[in-house]
């Protein structure tokens, strides 16, 4: 899960995921070392879709990957903590840390798999080189999304934020604005609707898709794996502490980080979902 993952599902999920944790829990063998079955809990999109692809690769190595889809964000952590399921793949690190602190669980992230990048999309201007004095750029107005938008603008040399402005940055943290850009804060859903009125808009992937943008083809710039946002909001594979080095988990990590899966992600999600590079 990440902050906009829910919205992402709203846009992309066409069929409700089947929650079969109860049945899965009973016939799952918790010991991963007994080479055969790896059980994993995941959100339907894109996580379960990526896992379905990974299952094919694992099968060729003699592993069976048993994926259980969850619509909520609490159960998948609880079933991993209780040992009913080996791993899960739906959340980002801030959520995981928060969950551990709140619930006294000891879950750990094994590997970052993908992130859903913010992009700068063309409004009345097609490329960043056209940017002119006094242009207006629309950004989402909620905490994380606004900060990610501002950080992305900073990464592209449009503004400079105060030192240490991280994922809580606001327009008040802008210390240098050479183009005298007006940052127009709007409700996230509203940002994509002003493309004909502002120079550029900064959007999360799902809203960009909803607005008819192709992340891969239309974004004039988007978050790279080494950006603070991607480092923070990368979706991770999570296991119960102590199981990190289990053979099955290692096999799963290897497959999820394989070139085949990376290519699958790039081909399938058109840039809205990007493989994370360590």
């Amino acid at each position: 899960m990440d902050t906009y993952g829910k919205d992402y599902e709203d846009t992309l999920v066409v069929e409700g995921g089947v929650v079969n944790s109860a049945s899965a829990a009973t016939d799952v063998i918790t010991d991963v070392t007994e080479k055969g079955t790896i059980t994993i809990a995941a959100s339907p999109t894109p996580h379960a879709e990526i896992l379905a692809e990974a299952a094919k690769l694992l099968a060729s190595q003699g592993w069976t990957l048993d994926v259980t889809e969850f619509e909520d964000y609490i159960q998948p952590n609880l079933v991993v903590d209780s040992g009913e399921i080996d791993a899960n793949y739906f959340q980002h690190i801030p959520y995981l840390d928060d969950f551990n602190a709140e619930n006294g669980t000891s879950l750990v992230a094994v590997s970052g798999i993908h992130y859903e990048p913010f992009g700068i999309y063309p409004g009345t201007k097609a490329t960043l080189s056209e940017i002119a004095d006094g242009d207006v750029i629309a950004v989402p107005n909620d905490t994380t999304n606004e900060a990610r938008a501002l950080l992305l603008l900073q990464d592209n040399g449009i503004i400079t934020l105060v030192d240490g402005a991280g994922l809580t940055a606001t327009v008040k943290d802008i210390v240098d604005n050479p183009y005298n850009i007006t940052i127009q804060e709007l409700e996230a859903a509203q940002v994509s609707r002003v493309t004909d009125e502002v120079a550029f808009v900064v959007l999360n992937g799902n809203y960009a898709l909803a607005a008819g943008f192709s992340v891969a083809h239309d974004a004039v710039a988007y978050e790279t794996s080494d950006s603070a946002a991607a480092q923070t909001y990368v979706n991770v594979l999570v296991v119960k502490e102590g199981n990190e080095n289990n053979e099955g988990i290692q096999a799963l990590v290897d497959v999820l980080n394989s070139e085949e899966i990376k290519q699958y992600i790039i081909d399938t999600y058109d840039g809205a979902v990007v493989p994370f590079e360590d």
């Binding site: 629309a138 107005n141 909620d142 905490t143 804060e185 409700e187 509203q190």
Partner: peptide, 20 residues
């Protein structure tokens, strides 16, 4: 009004007070 960037006290209360 904050939805369309209108600003105002209510918007500040929501964005800085509530969201942040």
């Amino acid at each position: 009004a904050g939805v369309v960037g209108g600003g105002g006290l209510g918007d500040i209360a929501i964005r800085y007070g509530y969201y942040r």
